[in-house]
Design a binder for these strands. Structure first.
Lengths: 177, 177
DNA sequence: TATTCCATGTAATTCGTTACATGATTCT
DNA sequence: AGAATCATGTAACGAATTACATGGAATA
């Protein structure tokens, strides 16, 4: 594939959990080529800005396998929404509800988009990546539903706090556990 | 608080969704001070490496409120586990199961840690941040449980694929929806 | 032939971690 | 006095985005 095609592929298939910019892709392709992990499909040097497809080499395939077997590194968790809610004592009470409400809304529209993606995947039942696509999709669906569930629970806790104070909050917390 | 105390606070309370390094904290404190958003508690300049506590200024408080009201920016999603699973067609079949299994295990131990945190929060029912701590904790609990649920679902789908191929996978997928 | 889309690339900047260096304070 | 811990700070590096610059190919 060309760098451009790689970017398009990412945007069309795994955009829910991975993104890349051209500023990353093009320098990285050169690095991979100079390491002998990929090589240009066409022997002759491209003129100007003509498209430049690349193909993986045997050495590249080996390294890919190796990478797949290494335990994935945990991504650094940095959730700005939770950070704001945690410190929202210093904001107007309205702000807390608003933060929760917006989170719910975003999760709802994400859920919509994922349902569309589901239809697309199911319409190609013979695609070799079917299982893995569904597994990855499932992660998105569960995450979105969880987000909605959390927003509702958070709203209820804020409600309890407003009406009955800390006592009501703890009562409600114990009830669900 | 001093930079050191800030770091300790983060590590003890919100480490599940936020981290900071000293390399960020100390230069940032200087920037905040030069912007007039915080000021040193002690008037006299600290000698050597003595502790240096800071206090927020009225201007800082204003900016904090403003920041709390701005819609949080979505964090860029980059899930290396999903990326590996998505491309695991190129690895040994064992690898896929292993990736899922490890994810489940990590979620389980995270759940354990969160339950411990829950006890800690509930043991201080009069803390002013009680609601917000529980809300943020709830997010972690739900996320961990979702991760486990997903791992089980993924294992089942891989199983279906191994036993009955694409047909069995789709059948199982439809059953749960 | 003008426009649109495909396509590559670089520079500037930001964000963040890690490693390193060093001093102050407290406890044994 | 020595060790452990509290405490601040900088340098080097890496990862990633954004903005910018430019050219090639297809099509209206």
């Amino acid at each position: 594939m060309t760098g451009f095609e790689i970017r398009s592929f990412i945007d069309q298939s795994i955009r829910f959990f991975w993104r890349e910019s051209f500023g990353q892709i093009y320098p990285e392709l050169k690095r991979l080529a100079s390491d002998g992990l990929i090589k240009p499909v066409r022997a002759d040097a491209p003129s100007g800005r003509a498209s430049q497809p690349w193909r993986i080499t045997p050495a590249g395939r080996d390294l890919l396998k190796e990478w797949l077997e290494k335990p994935p590194q945990e991504q650094p968790v940095r959730d700005e929404t939770l950070l704001k809610i945690f410190f929202s004592r210093h904001a107007a009470p309205e702000t807390q509800h608003e933060l929760v409400r917006q989170t719910r809304e975003r999760a709802m529209s994400k859920l919509q988009a994922l349902h569309a993606a589901e239809q697309l995947i199911l319409s190609h039942p013979d695609h070799p990546d079917l299982v893995r696509s569904l597994i990855v999709l499932e992660r998105g669906l569960l995450a979105a539903r969880t987000q909605i569930e959390w927003a509702d629970s958070a709203a209820a806790l804020l409600e309890a706090q407003a009406n009955g104070g800390a006592g009501a909050v703890i009562k409600r917390w114990r009830r669900k556990s």
